[in-house]
Design a protein around this nucleic acid. Sequence first.
DNA 1: TTTGGTGTTTTGTGATCACAAATTGCGAGG
DNA 2: CCTCGCAATTTGTGATCACAAAACACCAAA
Lengths: 219, 219
Amino acid sequence: MQALDDTVLDNLPTHERVYRALRDTVMDGALAPGEVLTLRGIAERLSVSMTPAREAVRRLAAERALEMTGSGRIFVPNPGLDQLEDLFQARLLLEPELARRAASSPDKTLRKRLSQIDSSIDENMKSGDAVGYIRNNTQFHRTLYQAAEAPALLALVETVWLQTAPMMRRVYGRLGTRELTDYHEAALAALAKQDAKALAQAIEADVAQGRDLLRQAQT
Amino acid sequence: MQALDDTVLDNLPTHERVYRALRDTVMDGALAPGEVLTLRGIAERLSVSMTPAREAVRRLAAERALEMTGSGRIFVPNPGLDQLEDLFQARLLLEPELARRAASSPDKTLRKRLSQIDSSIDENMKSGDAVGYIRNNTQFHRTLYQAAEAPALLALVETVWLQTAPMMRRVYGRLGTRELTDYHEAALAALAKQDAKALAQAIEADVAQGRDLLRQAQT
DNA sequence: TTTGGTGTTTTGTGATCACAAATTGCGAGG
DNA sequence: CCTCGCAATTTGTGATCACAAAACACCAAA
């Protein structure tokens, strides 16, 4: 009876495993903007053939988590400030709406889970763990929005996260995470009161903080 | 000196050609929701091997234009009413914003092109050409939003269009296109006056009309 | 007519390979 | 020190194939 919560990492198709592995490294900001990847490199690192590696890469490219030149060169996108503004605008349009919908969820379990994640975030902030911060912050938002039960909207937001992650990693690495304001507390309080408006505002402030930090970092 | 505007259909990678061909059929609503596709079928129809067909399909699946079961079966999504509401909500959040940004474009050429497209739409409506209507309507919106110079936002909207296209085709096929209100005229007038607010409202009304028509059709 | 099972066919998956194009490395010439 | 050019290498692409699993068709039993 080992591993009931195996997150079914095995028995998945190879291309799916490669996809998830690559996606996670992008989401963590483990890949620097502009960094170049090769199919053979990916395939070898994960002990698979080129075929599933190619499929995974093309899938990520479709989600704009990776980019490919006309000649097939694979690299991590390095969006300009303009494009980043667009991506944050998308977040500001979509995420408060998702929060609003999640607000009607009377789920006690949800609040507990969010609270736990927020504790981890606090630790990450104090210890300056940028990767841990990004990972838990993403998980906080994802968990909240899942309660909105709007998978089509959440999918859109996830692709935006993928596109901003490498840049945010760079920013947090430079500026640190110690001086960030934690809007999650306010979000949790609003959720407890089922105050959709306040929740949406807290999320908006949270997203806007990320945007402003990024603006500030861009020289 | 034939075909300078060949839209470079040749000399593109095979997987790209397959992708575009499939994407167009989805956008046109030529594929019915629930319809099943096979890699060998696609490959044979386009006279290519399975490899580029697979890549194209997986790319479309990443954009949610196609869906794949755990066992790899490929089919056109058949979203429930709930999901369609979400998709239209995304459109309502994103498209007015894109319109707003496009409004500052003083481009005379743009207005002329939009006007031409709108004429085609009028013909399509009168003749009840559902596919032509969908194609031109999409082109109208795309052309307008391209002026917003926010490719990241436009890409999000395009994926939403892909997801709703099969259902809209069904709806227009059933209810016809003759009784639709043409909000594009108002949009053009607002654009000429560079009235961002009015333009955004016209676009909102246009999108909302699509949503309402779909609601009405769902029994 | 419906249900259950069984054998056939269809289908996606992943590895391998030849090929062409792009990239890189390096040395000659300015 | 920089730039150009050529050769060696790296890299993505697309076809093919064996394989396992899923889907399907068909027939017998209730």
